[in-house]
Amino acid sequence: MSAGLYTQLLDLACGAFLLAAVLVLWGRELAAIVRVFALQGVALAAVGLLLGAHEARWDLILVALAVGVLRAGVLPYLIRRALAVSAADRGSDEVRETQPLVNVAASLLTAALLTLLAYAVARPLTELNPTPATRALPVGLAVVLIGFFVLVTRRRALAQVVGFLLLDNGITATAFLATSGVPVIVELGVSFDVLLAVLVLQILTTRVREAFGTTDIDDLRELHD
């Protein structure tokens, strides 16, 4: 693989990664959001694979494959299952993010601003060692910020789970791009952690719906002293 092709493919994968995050903000149907999230998992795995292939490191390729299976396969499957249960239970009301706290247009604008911020913050880091990988570093940071933004503005519990996972995807991407992949054992630990978190959140979401009849977490307002 030539250097030019590698750079172009890496940029493509990173672009798809960022675009998926923005599309999560755009979508209203939770099912569509989950699909976009799965696509982002694929893009993340592609970033890892490209880096591994470029540096000819088998452990990195292995980690990237594992990440791909988890983020594009297992996690979307789990969320979709929870979604199907709530759709069967309460009808279409529960499967749409009808009224986010910040509307879609403003969300997209904010995403643009956050991306700019990420580029501004990462500038000193890229200047340290300007390779194609570090030049793509701001994408990871931008996805972290966008994921956080989703957490803050979306009402449905499952949309929140996706936001949390976006944040984690961003962190993983940053780790790939900045350090050419963290050691296998660390990545395994992080992935396992995320899996457990999603399982717990899935159970929690079901419980919340059974108790309150909705998963709009803005209705839970007792959490103060």
Binding site: L114, L117, L145, F148, V152, R155, R221, L223, H224
Partner: peptide
């Protein structure tokens, strides 16, 4: 501390963004 989870998350987000800025 109003009780809304979104508010608490918003504090964290605003803090992060302000710090980065």
């Amino acid at each position: 501390a109003g009780g809304s989870v979104h508010l608490y998350l918003g504090y964290g987000f605003a803090g992060l963004v302000v710090l980065l800025l």
